[in-house]
């Protein structure tokens, strides 16, 4: 096959909030097995793009394809069933539940057990063990019984990733996974991302340029809702327009 379907593709994606065009005709391809970074200044529309792709927001126009199939009309949960996983820029976790149960919820949902009314959740031993194994892999096992809201922020960022990995996604969207984490602690997060399965298509939004250049083999720059340029890390680093809109403005972050 000369033209394998992209793991994720958008065509002419548009979204406005009132008069504000936050996503402008975005044509984007994420290849299977990709390590792709989406960068751009604050307010460029990166998070909005993720929300459009997952179905958390409805596009004003355009098409979204997962594995070549049009999913634009599908609800969030149906896109997840097709392998789409995500994390949130701002922790969006089950704060009053334990770390282990946070992951159990996503694994239970992924395995189609979550609608069960009669058997106790705790009797699904395989779900519990799978969740625990995942926590061990993310070095979260020591915190398994602690409530998420009692964890330090950096650990909560790891739980964000753990909950998404519980879905065994084929396309994973990470929205600033290391945002707000002291660099001493972000090492674990980078390790985890680097050890993701090779066939997983990864899109990562990140502000830390060292991290981006370390993780990404391809970079897309978003500016004011539109794709400014896309290329290899070397091409992006050398691009003068990128320097202007983005790298030059880094001071604040």
């Amino acid at each position: 096959m000369s033209d394998i379907a992209a793991a994720l593709e958008t065509r002419g994606l548009e979204r406005s909030f009132g008069a504000l065009r936050v996503t402008r005709h975005v044509d984007f391809r994420l290849e299977p097995g990709a390590r792709h970074a989406l960068i751009g200044p604050n307010g460029a529309g990166k998070t909005t793009f993720i929300n459009l792709v997952t179905g958390a927001l409805t596009p004003s126009a355009g098409t979204i394809l997962l594995g070549g199939a049009d999913v634009t009309a599908l609800a969030q949960e149906q896109r997840v069933k097709r392998g789409l996983g995500r994390t949130f820029q701002i922790n969006t976790l089950f704060r009053g539940l334990s770390v282990l149960e946070n992951v159990c919820l996503s694994i239970g949902e992924h395995r189609g057990l979550a609608g069960g009314l009669f058997r106790p959740a705790g009797s699904h031993r395989d779900v519990l063990l799978a969740a625990y194994a995942l926590l061990e892999r993310l070095r979260l096992a020591d915190d398994a019984s602690r409530l998420v809201r009692e964890l330090p922020y950096g650990r909560q960022r790891l739980v964000e990733i753990a909950v998404a990995l519980g879905l065994e996604p084929t396309v994973l969207l990470l929205d600033e996974p290391a945002a707000g984490v002291p660099s001493a602690e972000s090492g674990i997060i980078v390790d985890v991302i680097e050890s993701l399965p090779a066939d997983l298509a990864l899109l990562i939004i990140e502000h830390d340029m060292d991290l981006v250049f370390r993780l990404a083999r391809r970079i897309t720059v978003l500016d004011q809702g539109a794709i400014l340029v896309e290329g290899t890390p070397q091409e992006i680093a050398a691009d003068s327009r990128v320097r202007e809109v983005y790298l030059g403005e880094r001071g604040g972050r």
């Binding site: 997952t54 179905g55 958390a56 969030q76 949960e77 997840v80 069933k81 996983g85 995500r86 949130f88 969006t92 976790l93 089950f94 704060r95 009053g96 539940l97 149960e101 159990c104 919820l105 996503s106 239970g108 949902e109 992924h110 057990l113 979550a114 609608g115 069960g116 009314l117 009669f118 058997r119 106790p120 959740a121 705790g122 699904h124 909950v163 998404a164 519980g166 879905l167």
Partner: peptide, 26 residues
């Protein structure tokens, strides 16, 4: 029985974070 069932746990999940429940395919 319902509260301790997987279904009941997802109810708690929805109460804790509806956005995340959507994101895990619920």
């Amino acid at each position: 029985i319902i509260v301790y069932s997987p279904f009941g746990r997802t109810l708690t999940g929805i109460r804790e974070s509806e956005a995340r429940m959507h994101a895990i395919g619920s």
